[in-house]
Computed example of a mutant assay.
Amino acid sequence: MKEVTYLAPMERPSMNADQIETLCADLGPHAAEDVICRAMEELAHRLCALQEMAVHGPREDLHKGLRALSAIADQIGMVGLSDVARDVINCLELGDLVAEAATLARLARIGERSLTAMWDHNDLLG
């Protein structure tokens, strides 16, 4: 009998704290917190929608959704999430379905970890 090895990829989310500081300086801490919370909610919604689009939706919608997710993530300093969204876009454009499936799975993992990290470190706003 062959032995099966299960892989559990672990990746720390890459965050740009300078972007949070810039938002706080430009908007003030309360308005920055509001922007970040709304962006996080939108990212969570889009991550779910993108998984559904990958299976059932038109490819053009998936491409647009990934670009929007990347832009929102950049706005609040989630550079790792933004980078992975762009990686998925590259796979779409190359037509590599295997790489697309792998990077979509990575997007889900890094998305969840990025949102959790941002939530856990909301003290950055102070």
Results as ranks from 00 to 15, higher is better:
residue 2 K to F: 15
residue 3 E to V: 13
residue 4 V to M: 08
residue 4 V to W: 12
residue 4 V to N: 11
residue 4 V to S: 08
residue 5 T to V: 15
residue 5 T to N: 08
residue 5 T to W: 08
residue 7 L to H: 10
residue 8 A to Y: 11
residue 10 M to Q: 09
residue 10 M to Y: 11
residue 11 E to S: 06
residue 11 E to L: 04
residue 12 R to D: 10
residue 12 R to K: 03
residue 13 P to A: 00
residue 15 M to W: 10
residue 15 M to V: 11
residue 15 M to N: 04
residue 15 M to H: 07
residue 15 M to D: 06
residue 15 M to A: 02
residue 16 N to L: 00
residue 16 N to F: 05
residue 17 A to H: 10
residue 17 A to Y: 13
residue 18 D to K: 01
residue 18 D to Q: 07
residue 18 D to C: 03
residue 19 Q to I: 14
residue 20 I to T: 15
residue 20 I to K: 05
residue 20 I to N: 10
residue 20 I to Q: 09
residue 21 E to H: 10
residue 21 E to C: 09
residue 22 T to A: 14
residue 22 T to D: 14
residue 23 L to G: 15
residue 23 L to P: 15
residue 24 C to K: 13
residue 25 A to W: 13
residue 26 D to W: 01
residue 26 D to G: 04
residue 27 L to I: 00
residue 28 G to N: 05
residue 28 G to M: 01
residue 29 P to I: 00
residue 31 A to T: 15
residue 32 A to E: 14
residue 34 D to Y: 11
residue 38 R to D: 13
residue 38 R to W: 06
residue 38 R to F: 09
residue 39 A to V: 07
residue 39 A to P: 15
residue 40 M to I: 02
residue 41 E to Y: 05
residue 41 E to H: 08
residue 41 E to V: 12
residue 41 E to Q: 06
residue 42 E to M: 04
residue 43 L to K: 00
residue 43 L to S: 02
residue 43 L to M: 06
residue 43 L to V: 13
residue 44 A to K: 00
residue 44 A to S: 06
residue 44 A to V: 03
residue 44 A to D: 07
residue 45 H to G: 07
residue 46 R to T: 14
residue 46 R to E: 13
residue 48 C to N: 05
residue 51 Q to V: 07
residue 54 A to K: 00
residue 57 G to T: 11
residue 57 G to Q: 06
residue 59 R to A: 09
residue 60 E to W: 01
residue 61 D to Q: 05
residue 65 G to D: 04
residue 65 G to R: 04
residue 66 L to H: 07
residue 68 A to T: 14
residue 70 S to K: 07
residue 72 I to Y: 12
residue 72 I to Q: 10
residue 73 A to C: 05
residue 74 D to G: 15
residue 74 D to P: 15
residue 74 D to N: 14
residue 75 Q to E: 11
residue 75 Q to M: 10
residue 76 I to F: 08
residue 77 G to H: 07
residue 77 G to D: 08
residue 78 M to A: 10
residue 78 M to E: 04
residue 80 G to D: 02
residue 81 L to E: 03
residue 81 L to I: 13
residue 81 L to D: 03
residue 81 L to R: 04
residue 83 D to P: 06
residue 84 V to S: 09
residue 84 V to H: 06
residue 84 V to K: 04
residue 84 V to N: 07
residue 85 A to S: 12
residue 85 A to H: 05
residue 87 D to V: 01
residue 87 D to T: 03
residue 89 I to T: 09
residue 90 N to H: 06
residue 90 N to S: 08
residue 91 C to P: 12
residue 97 L to Q: 14
residue 98 V to Q: 11
residue 98 V to C: 09
residue 102 A to H: 12
residue 104 L to P: 14
residue 107 L to H: 06
residue 107 L to T: 07
residue 107 L to E: 08
residue 108 A to L: 02
residue 108 A to N: 08
residue 109 R to P: 12
residue 110 I to E: 01
residue 110 I to P: 08
residue 111 G to E: 03
residue 112 E to L: 03
residue 113 R to I: 10
residue 114 S to Y: 05
residue 114 S to I: 08
residue 114 S to C: 06
residue 116 T to A: 02
residue 118 M to S: 06
residue 118 M to G: 05
residue 119 W to E: 03
residue 120 D to H: 05
residue 123 D to N: 07
residue 124 L to W: 15
residue 125 L to V: 13
residue 126 G to W: 07
residue 126 G to S: 12
